[in-house]
Amino acid sequence: MRAARLLLSVGFLKNNNLTLVLGIFLSVCWVVIAIFAPWIAPYDPIAQDVARTLQPPSFAHPFGTDNFGRDVLSRVIWGSRVDLAMGLGGVFAPIIIGCTIGLLAGYFGGIIDTLLMRFLDITISFPFFILMIAIISILGPGLMSFFIALALVGWVSYARLVRSRTLVLRHSDFVAAGQILGFSSIRIMFRHVLPNAALPVLVFIMSDVVLTILLGSSLSYLGLGVQPPLAEWGIMIAEGQNFISTAWWITLFPGLAIVILALSFSLIADGLAAQYKVSE
């Protein structure tokens, strides 16, 4: 798997796809930071130090300290774990549910298509954010509720994307060949249709990860996502906003972290989209 990734990136380099390479580089950096957080972070992210509250950036605390005397740099580093898990984990269930529903609707058509697509219409007729807040309010705040709420409402884009590709692929000769050879519908859907519909989905996943992280951060900001004192960028910004005029560093650095992480995935999405056009 890792070797395949490496080969892929080398292949992309040949095409001078700088966007994609830069995006992958930045994302890999974040993943490394998240994995090695305990060793990289200079301080304990939740250890309070009353003697050193609201200190501006210095050598001892490069990103300064917050109102409880916690080191902002360490909190940003530990926060990458939560935010990456939130982004990558949050899209997981929607991908599986959305792809399956899209495949079923597109491949079988008829009454199955109609039922599934009306169900989809009902889901998207509610404002996304309001629906998320409603579901999380019922389930109680926390990361798990966030994942469940996303699984319930986040699949619609994937379903539409996969369905539209499936409608085209269903009439291709290689699908007909599979039917004539007696392949099961499940085999044709998952081995022949889905892999050929996967690239636009992959591009969308990248931007969806960004949206999910932003969504998670805003929910944490509202107090519905990750709970304090756990270090999470959205919470850090929310906590820091009371001190924005005197201690700007509490909000600036987690804000920058969100921007850079979002940028890296967006770059991958753009790069993949460009790559897709090249190879088609």
């Binding site: 291709s172 000769d173 290689f174 060949a177 892999p195 050929n196």
Partner: peptide, 23 residues
């Protein structure tokens, strides 16, 4: 019996490239 029929009647397609899964 349908599976058996699938085994006994086959087709060769007009578009050689389109009849094969590109992946």
């Amino acid at each position: 019996s349908l599976f058996d029929y699938r085994r006994r009647v086959q087709m060769i397609f007009q578009d050689p490239l389109g009849s094969l899964n590109p992946r």
